[in-house]
Design a binder for these strands. Structure first.
Lengths: 221, 221
DNA sequence: GTTAATTGAAAATTGATCTTTTCATCAGAG
DNA sequence: CTCTGATGAAAAGATCAATTTTCAATTAAC
């Protein structure tokens, strides 16, 4: 609930840990540049918007010269892809961890826990939702493909959990119900983002849970 | 199923009918310019994409000089808004007409009929779906507001029909279930658009109907 | 210590649009 | 017929962001 202004992306926990204070090798410095650019992009894209963020502003914020920016082979689009992946991976991680921790057998608990994790991932810092559901949309075909990919991941998780709970339901591999549910959650999140004043995250959580209650009920019959 | 290459927008049936062959008053000519621009925008935005359609290409296709374009106070964004409104109004009209024609009492028929009308509106010419669900997304805050508005219209229709069928359900005014269903349909349509080779429209129709079956079932319990 | 690579800062270049203006032509009003 | 306003075609100007290059300063390597 707090880290609203952290400016950091949660995901990359390890990896680029340079201990002392200065760069090490050229590769390490380049990696840090990319990292700073990614963080700055997350900030700026969610604050002033993707289309309103020129490269030089991005570079200034990241403390990277425009020359290095291009030497690194970056473009604004690629940066968005980087950020988008980070954000969705974070959400995936949250959900998968919640499911891994959830009781294997007590099926009725698993889905609510997953929903809570999912909602928290996108709402603990509003920028996550904004990035994933507003700013990254409609930029390019590649980005759309990334979005589709991410949706498929969640779609698969949903299908698995439904099947675990209701093995006899007709939610087979070719059923589009999981796709529909992913879209429903996306829209609920957008609605949450667009509602002013912003309702508590709990409202979104309840809406999603209610949706799943209804659907699971419907599948049982 | 046919009119794939019509290049015309279905909605504006009457209005600008100039009988003879030439322009009439200045206002009429301006109106025709806007109309030609709208049609050209629909074509180009769905074919080469919104971002890849410069003004001069648009103007050439519409047989309007760039000077007139600006004299008319147009921008690419405004044109997209015009086109988007036309497309969604057409879909709204189809659904509302279907519901008006449907038996007032035989509640179980109304929703499938509405779904068929909705699916047909967006799939009879793939460009409708493409415009509404791909090209118009992520352009500007104003466009997003338009999209939200359109979603609200459908959301309201869905709520009304659910309440007509299940007056005792808890789908009250503040329930987000209709919002979720609109999002679900959007995602199903995007999925349909992205699937290659393109499945028949019937596949989309079935997916939407199945979703509503499940949800209505769930609400009954 | 000298040389080569790296770096930051900023300027210069390029490319693509958007937007305005010009000019010659044409249609209709008086 | 003449004048005013409208029109098409094209040029000119303005803007903006992307990309490359320069230059001076710093760092690392030998």
């Amino acid at each position: 609930m707090t880290a609203k202004k952290s400016g950091r992306l949660d995901l990359p926990p390890g990896d680029l840990g340079r201990a002392d204070g200065r760069p090490a090798t050229k590769e390490a410095r380049d990696r840090e540049r990319v990292e700073r650019l990614t963080v700055a992009a997350f900030d700026l894209f969610t604050q002033r918007g993707y289309h309103n963020t020129p490269i030089d502003v991005l570079c200034t914020a990241a403390n990277v010269s425009t020359r290095d920016f291009y030497k690194l082979g970056k473009t604004r689009e690629k940066l968005m892809a980087l950020v988008y992946r980070r954000v969705t991976r974070y959400a995936e991680l949250c959900v998968l961890r919640a499911l891994a921790d959830a009781p294997e057998n007590d099926s009725t608990q698993r889905i609510p826990l997953a929903i809570e994790a999912w909602v928290h991932a996108y709402t603990h810092d509003e920028r996550y939702a904004r990035l994933a559901y507003l700013e990254s949309v409609g930029i390019s075909d590649e980005l759309e493909a990334l979005r589709t990919e991410a949706h498929e991941v969640f779609s698969k998780v949903i299908r698995d959990e439904i099947l675990r709970l209701l093995p006899d339901s007709d939610v087979t591999l070719e059923s589009k119900l999981p796709v529909a549910l992913v879209g429903a959650c996306n829209e609920l999140t957008r609605d949450w983002l667009a509602t002013k004043p912003r309702p508590p995250a709990k409202a979104l959580e309840d809406a999603v849970k209610n949706l799943y209650d209804v659907v699971l009920h419907g599948l049982r019959a």
